[in-house]
Design a protein around this nucleic acid. Structure first.
Length: 180
DNA sequence: ACACGGATACTA
DNA sequence: AGTATCCGTGTC
């Protein structure tokens, strides 16, 4: 949870490409019906066998790869990286995506995986040791964050575990107006 | 609005 | 084996 917030504003470096993380979602290993750990023994085994910072990459809808980061500590879980603001290697990302518009390069978990060429071969990779595949230190401590409902799930759908950089134009989808 | 597509974990 | 479900995207 805390980690999902803290990753916003960091720069994800992936080979020759990079981008600022502008959207994440938190999934907890326990009591979260939307998390893979709720229905998949293989996800629970993954947590047992890996250290914090390991990449959890899986194939979804038979089409897209999703990049998650393993979190361990007070509460174990995963952070899904959902959108980036492209920084370096933009030409390469445009080529991989077949799209010019920078706002559509990494504005979704499947899109950013395609733009960075993330696939199952990166599953279980340690993102804390390899400088070519890592998150850089936090630049601005007071990033303006918004918490909202997670996207694309049916169970545990009311939790406000999606975190976005306020007013970013690189999100997968705009933040829905919250009732108050 | 809908089709696309494969891994995973179920039921037999 | 067969079926249900899924942390999405692009195009209709």
């Amino acid at each position: 949870m805390t980690c999902a917030r803290e990753l916003i504003g960091t720069e994800l470096v992936w080979g020759r490409c990079s981008g600022i993380v502008v959207e994440t979602e938190a999934y907890t290993a326990l009591n979260d019906e939307a998390a893979h750990t709720f229905t998949r023994p293989s996800a629970r085994a993954f947590i047992e066998r890996n250290e914090a910072g390991a990449a959890y990459v899986y194939f979804n809808y038979g089409v897209h790869w999703m990049l998650n980061v393993l979190v361990k500590g007070n509460e174990d879980g995963f952070v899904l990286i959902r959108a980036l603001e492209p920084r370096r290697g933009i030409a390469l990302m445009q080529k991989r995506r077949g799209v010019e518009d920078e706002r559509r390069l990494c504005s979704g978990p499947g899109k950013l995986a395609q733009a960075l060429d993330i696939t199952g071969r990166h599953h279980e990779m340690d993102l804390c040791r390899d400088p070519r595949h890592c998150f850089t230190a936090h630049a601005n401590e007071d990033a303006d964050l918004v918490a909202s409902k997670r996207i694309g799930i049916t169970r545990s759908a009311d939790l406000l575990w999606r975190f976005t950089l306020r007013d970013s134009t690189f999100l997968s989808r705009p933040v829905k107006a919250q009732r108050r």
